[in-house]
Design a protein around this nucleic acid. Structure first.
Length: 495
RNA sequence: GGCCCUAUCGUCUAGCCUGGCCUAGGACACCGCCCUCUCAAGGCGGAGACACGGGUUCAAAUCCCGUUAGGGCUACCA
């Protein structure tokens, strides 16, 4: 029987990698067990929540390939899925708590409670708040609530609270550690601990997978489940993701939002793969796994309970691996937004030959690239070099008689149309070698420099035919062929 | 401060539950070699860890206690 899981982000900002990991694990477990994933928006903090963030979070999840079965955008049998739309339900349950003597009104402000807490801390002990109306009857409580302005507090019982965390085993808190916490604010809105219990129960969630920062909250929630006589779900608290200095992951130490990572040219499957590898390792030694493969082998119970550091270098490596796994057409599709940004307009999807050429060019230019942004930059440089830069890079070729002879011969071959396939190119290489006596590095280095302005890059036997074919295609901007590049490098042609 | 969680190479981890098979395995990064017109990629090899201290045991990375360190919570945030 599949499990029902949920991912419940708060729309107070962009989707963070930590939350993305939580979402991914929930999704993986739901898929692996044949269960379902519920997406719920926790927007009870009206001050900090906004719709723009919610839209962005949904878009980021979709980009990652995380699909939900029920949610605010698609509905489902246990909606609504936005806490701001469930206020009546929270009030209903709060009334029930008051009626059964589990909750009472409290007029102390947050500031007053905070100063009590500070005092207790000075004294060195732990702090446990209890409101003055804690022991009133249900009728008295209702009368007090009538006056308005009261928050509702949960009357925490004097018992130990134990529960099982899937990764840590039994844990909990001893009696007296928890003070009476607020369940409903003075304005009537529910607090996190309260709303989450009601929603998880109402939405039939049987397994909660969330960040370890929620571990100390769990006993409070267990207490609520008990007071309400509901069955609590199973809990799995995921360790946190840390910055390289082992402090809390912060913006200062690089990209922490999914949006930034995407804009940095990272593939969603690479990010998922990377996130899955935090705290977990696959049963066999291959770590490069696509979403479907992850789904098949991922085992949430094997996740380490220790926090892990976000290692950007490994993410980049994985990205390179996933880029290499893509078909030429897919790679071109993925890099297209970055090419557009780099000023290259791609021919529409209808133009078969031109698109095929671009796809081949992307594969060739991208050899070893780790990010789509890097591939786009390399591709741009390859197909439309700056003439000034090319000329400058070729001073040594112009000053060297043999080098000049080599590239001049290739320019001739190009003009004769003898370089547009690998075989013809290889023949041309043999002829030039014989005619000039240049071989090896002395033959290839000037040629590479003259056509690309660089001393490293893709294999010439692939690059040269590609450029020659590209030059004959009606591309915009036009791709200069080998002869033109050499002319520019030698300064024989200027515009 | 109080409470909770955690602790194997620089990083992500396997091994820990069910002590001997661990001379502690893999991946990223690093170094070297090979391949090669170049840079990558790829192949091969190298260096690199059981936080510390006590126990328990014939035997501890593995079990127990403590210390230290890191992280979390301590809100009418989530």
């Amino acid at each position: 029987m599949g499990q029902r899981l949920r991912f419940a982000p708060s729309p107070t900002g962009l989707l963070h990698v930590g939350n993305a990991r939580t979402a991914l694990v929930n999704w993986l477990v739901a898929r692996h067990t044949g269960g379902s994933l519920v997406l719920r928006i926790e927007d009870t903090d009206v001050e900090r929540s906004d719709e723009e963030n919610e839209r962005a979070i949904l878009a980021d999840l979709a980009w990652l390939g995380i699909e939900w079965d029920e949610g605010p955008d698609i509905g489902g049998p246990y909606g609504p899925y936005r806490q701001s739309e469930r206020l009546d339900r929270y009030t209903e349950v709060a009334d029930r708590l008051v009626a059964s003597g589990w909750a009472y009104p409290c007029f102390q402000t947050a500031e007053q409670v905070e100063s009590l807490r500070q005092q207790a801390r000075q004294g060195g002990g732990s702090f446990r708040f209890r409101g003055e109306h804690r022991d009133v009857s249900a009728d008295e409580a209702r009368a007090l609530i009538e006056q308005g302005g009261a928050a509702l507090r949960f009357k925490v019982p004097d018992t130990d609270v134990r529960f099982v965390d899937d990764l840590r085993g039994e844990t909990g808190l001893v009696a007296g550690e928890i003070g009476d916490f607020v369940v409903t604010r003075a304005d009537g809105s529910p607090t996190y601990n309260f709303a989450v219990v009601i929603d998880d129960h109402d939405m039939r969630i049987d397994r909660v997978v969330r960040g370890e920062d929620h571990l100390p909250n769990t006993p409070r929630q267990i207490l609520l489940y008990e007071a309400l006589e509901w069955q609590p779900p199973a809990f799995t608290h995921l360790p946190l993701i840390l910055s390289p200095d082992r402090s809390r992951l912060s913006k200062r130490q690089g990209a922490t939002s999914v949006a930034e990572i995407r804009e940095g040219g990272v593939l969603p499957e690479a990010l998922c793969n990377f996130l899955a590898l935090l705290g977990w390792s696959p049963p066999d030694e291959n770590e490069v796994l696509r979403p479907a493969e992850l789904e098949a082998v991922y085992d949430v119970s094997k996740i380490s309970a220790a926090n892990s550091v976000f290692d950007l270098t490994k993410l980049e490596w994985l990205n390179g691996q996933h880029m290499a796994l893509l078909s030429p057409g897919d790679l071109l599709d993925r890099v297209t937004p970055f090419l557009v940004e780099a000023g290259i307009e791609l021919p529409g999807p209808g133009l078969g030959r031109e698109r095929e050429w671009f796809a081949a060019a992307a594969v060739l230019a991208g050899g070893g690239a780790r990010r789509l942004t890097e591939l786009a930059a390399r591709l741009r440089e390859l197909i439309c070099p700056s003439w000034g830069g090319l000329f400058e890079a070729n001073a040594e070729v112009r000053d060297d008689e043999e080098a000049r002879a080599v590239v001049g011969a290739f320019a001739e071959s190009s003009r004769a149309g003898e370089l547009d396939n690998e075989e013809a190119y290889l023949d041309a290489v043999s002829r030039v070698r014989e005619a000039t006596g240049a071989a090896g590095r002395r033959l290839f280095h000037p040629l590479r420099l003259a056509i690309s302005g660089r001393d490293s890059g893709p294999e010439l036997k692939q690059l040269i035919p590609l450029l020659e074919v590209g030059a004959r295609l009606a591309l915009e901007p036009a791709v200069p062929g080998v002869a033109e590049r050499i002319d520019r490098a030698l300064g024989l042609r200027r515009s």
